[in-house]
Design a protein around this nucleic acid. Structure first.
Lengths: 146, 146
DNA sequence: TTGACAAATGCAACTAAGTTGCATTAAGAT
DNA sequence: ATCTTAATGCAACTTAGTTGCATTTGTCAA
């Protein structure tokens, strides 16, 4: 697992101690493909019969964000989800029925081109954009037909 | 004001009574250019020295959503904002410094084309997407330079 | 114009997600 | 093994929104 090593290295390089909490975080984030919420993390601790306080989880997530280990993703809910930055820039397909999330590569050439044009017209500096797709995954679509 | 009439008509057509709350809603949504939060609405009532309970506001907003008078917009915060559906499909530039919001038209031909392709590859039915731009408006950019 | 009645509103209590301050515990350097 | 301070736990709080039920108020029919 190259990802795990990479994460442990970033933690070490930033002088962070190797705690039980961090080990669980590394496990969870490397194992999961889709963005993870604080509730997901708390569930994982419960599942493995380890105790943790939600404050600790929130604080650790904050640290991981400031170290750019994870970044926040929002799917139009009121909960924040997080994903590994090292997995690169990408977008998501979110199934509105079952919450299934899939990563997708979108060709952003056209989008960047438009940002450039708008930047000049509006004197607006573009820093980032959010682009997420919502719909029905293959399974839910099939189920919906009957 | 064509917009106001249109709104009052929708309300009437759906058998909704013409209450003080609804009048304020119509005023606010037609006057404002940018998406409005529940807090904005409560502030408007306070400003005009009218009393309203937050429950009423939340319930009215819910009604307006189900009647497709307004739609929810999220800018990666934890608050929901709403805007008039009759103003059509568009995207937003959001200034991360001053919260200023501007509507923008984006040419989505390329995006739709990609959605179509992905739809076939992934057997995913695309229902909608969210696309918002974050950056610095002209003023904030100027201020940031010193 | 006045009742009647459902729609609309108010109120209080609750939930979910996240935050803060401060006391306690435990990594890991010496 | 000890010491320092990062990390954690706990309780209390905040913010955004929700729910159940009692009260008020538009509107329609008489």
């Amino acid at each position: 697992m190259k990802e795990k090593e990479a994460l442990y290295q970033v933690l070490r390089m930033n002088g962070l101690r190797l705690t039980r909490t961090r080990r669980v975080f590394v496990e969870l984030f490397t194992r999961n493909k889709k963005p993870i919420s604080v509730l997901d993390i708390l569930d994982e601790f419960r599942r493995t019969r380890q105790k943790v306080n939600k404050t600790t989880v929130y604080r650790e997530i904050e640290r991981w964000q400031t170290l750019h280990i994870v970044s926040e993703v929002l799917f139009g809910e009121r909960v924040s989800r997080y994903e590994l930055v090292l997995r690169g820039h990408h977008h998501h397909l979110v199934c509105v029925e079952c919450e299934h999330v899939e990563e997708v590569e979108v060709n952003e050439r056209d989008l960047h081109c438009q940002e450039k044009k708008m930047s000049q017209e509006k004197k607006f500096t573009f820093l980032r954009h959010s682009l997420e797709f919502f719909g029905l995954c293959a399974q839910c679509r099939a189920e919906k037909c009957f």
